[in-house]
Amino acid sequence: MEFIIKKFFYSISLVFGTFTLTFIIFNLIPTNPARIILGPNAPQEAVIELERKLGLDKPLYIQFINEFKDTFKFKFKKSIISEKDVLKEVIKRFINSFKVIFLTLIFSIFISYFLNLISFYHPKFKFIVNITKIGIILPTFVSSISIITLIAIFFPKISIRYNPENFLTLILPALILSFYPIAFLTHVFNKKINEITKSTYFKSAVSLGFSKNYIFHKICFKASLVSLLSSLVNILSVAFFSTIIIEIVFTIPGIGLLLFDSVIKKDFPMLKAIVFINALFFITINLIAEILYSKIDPRINYA
């Protein structure tokens, strides 16, 4: 329990750190955001007006305190371009992205599980696992980009655009995204199983006559759960990078497309909110995973 409280406060300090990092990026780099937004030909009065609107005319430490208060009350400034409430917009887009990422995770978990199950039951099918290892050679989104290219060249008639009413249009992007996670998870799981099959407790379980089903699920799966979980967390942040590209190609209105739009239109409040909320999400995920490790494997004790 003490460990959980410690981790919780440490995560809060990490949130504060990311806030400081974004503040440094947006305020300390010697450029004028108001000038960037309005362009080089804008009159000086308009620039000063916008500076006042963004709160850039105050001293730096007051800006920092004001923004700190606002951000931790989840009161963000309104978007410069669309005048929308930033928080609502980000959360709405985030849910769209999360659908894709969730489907990807489900696909990758189930496919890697079944591949390992098959190769465990019938060792002659082991070559399938070895083939998927090719996926790790290619960096995270090279595989997805090459699949998109192949689809665009050989099946030009497939309409790949996302349709919000039709849930099935999410399946193709999710499948393309899950190419790397499948390879990664299969590799990790397979390596762990190979390790376990050499151990003495595995041999004793076999000689005691437990069924293959029992051995796979109760011994191999349970023992490799921690490393699978940590690689899932790893995959989540990797998948985030690829979703940006997938969303731009498939025009899914997710967080990646929002990032793309607000980067192009120089929508700084929106960008701040995107960075902060995503950082919050990833830090929470990490916290949950670290608590889960110690629950799954009691030997892990960070305190």
Partner: peptide, 18 residues
């Protein structure tokens, strides 16, 4: 820990927009 948990592309795009 901060640099590891926050995805690279987020910090990068924030910095590049400025």
């Amino acid at each position: 820990d901060i640099l590891i948990t926050v995805p690279l592309i987020l910090i990068l795009s924030a910095a590049l927009s400025v």
